[in-house]
């Protein structure tokens, strides 16, 4: 009689013990991350791991659907909305109701105990496996198709109505009417000239950023003929963010080089 030194490990067990903890960690991370983008990415991690577990549970169709629908469509939609609704808006953790967090966690623990107690009553220790059910129609997809287009065909049709209603509803809800007419090129040019006539604002494009011997970044200010800084040459957004670099410091190497050249020239003339 041969005894197995290593207990028989199935692919399911490997998938469960690798993806299960990862899912729990990612789910906790989703709840704990302060920024919505991180939460969305953590949730995408949960869904990918869940897809792997579906694959290990003999559900190849759901594995693919989980990846396409959840990680593909739903999470992308989430990320789009996160980008629209403000990525950088930090959530305030001030409790409007005192003891809210503690009470919530207690309630969740209670719910877990309830789940464990109820489900614990119906625990089963063996699974029939869906191998036979899959093989009945020649595969998992064929078997599901037989169910969806046979036994559940009415629910399936209702699903199509639901999806089209949701799509139309989203379009109606997210549509925002324009309150002011869109400005065309002629209107903008007219406004620019009017601004020039009344306030004397230059109607042409703004000066480009400065080019120095060692710097030509978009943050380097351009110099006017009299040596002063052209304020318009750097975007105000950049000025607000990092400040205007000192033009004298930027031009210093050039000035030093010129001074050295002049000195050398003078020395040459003395030699002659």
């Amino acid at each position: 009689m041969t005894t197995l030194l290593v207990p028989l490990v199935t692919g399911e067990a490997v998938a469960y013990w690798v993806c299960g903890p990862l899912m729990v960690i990612a789910a906790l991370a989703m709840v704990l991350f302060r920024k919505a983008v991180y939460s969305a990415l953590a949730l995408a991690g949960v869904m990918v791991n869940l897809a792997v577990i579906y694959a290990s549970l003999d559900a190849p169709f759901l594995f693919v659907v989980q990846i396409i629908v959840y990680t593909g469509a739903v999470m992308m939609l989430f990320l789009f909305v996160v980008m629209l609704v403000g990525v950088d808006s930090k959530e305030s953790m001030v409790e409007k109701i005192q003891g809210h967090t503690v009470a919530s966690v207690l309630a969740a623990v209670g719910a877990f105990v309830l789940l464990a107690a109820f489900v614990g009553n119906s625990l089963v220790n063996s699974a029939v496996g869906v191998g036979d059910a899959n093989a009945q129609y020649g595969g998992n997809v064929q078997g599901l198709a037989a169910l969806l287009f046979g036994k559940y065909v009415l629910a399936f049709e209702a699903t199509s109505a639901l999806l089209i209603t949701a799509a139309v509803g989203a379009m109606v809800l997210a549509y925002a009417e324009r309150l002011t007419p869109r400005l065309d090129q002629r209107a903008r040019a007219k406004a620019r000239i009017a601004e020039y006539v009344t306030n004397g604002v230059h109607p042409g494009p703004r000066p480009s950023s400065g080019v120095y011997a060692r710097h030509n970044a978009i943050t380097s200010p351009a110099l006017l003929p009299d040596g002063t800084v052209a304020q318009d040459s750097v975007s105000p957004v950049l000025v607000n963010r990092i400040g205007l670099p000192d033009a004298d410091a930027l031009a210093a190497p050039t000035k030093k080089a010129f001074a050295a050249m002049e000195a050398a020239q003078g020395a040459d003339e003395e030699d002659l």
Partner: peptide, 10 residues
């Protein structure tokens, strides 16, 4: 998987 049919997956 426990019950051996595909209704749960549907």
């Amino acid at each position: 998987r426990v019950h051996g049919n595909l209704d749960g997956q549907a």
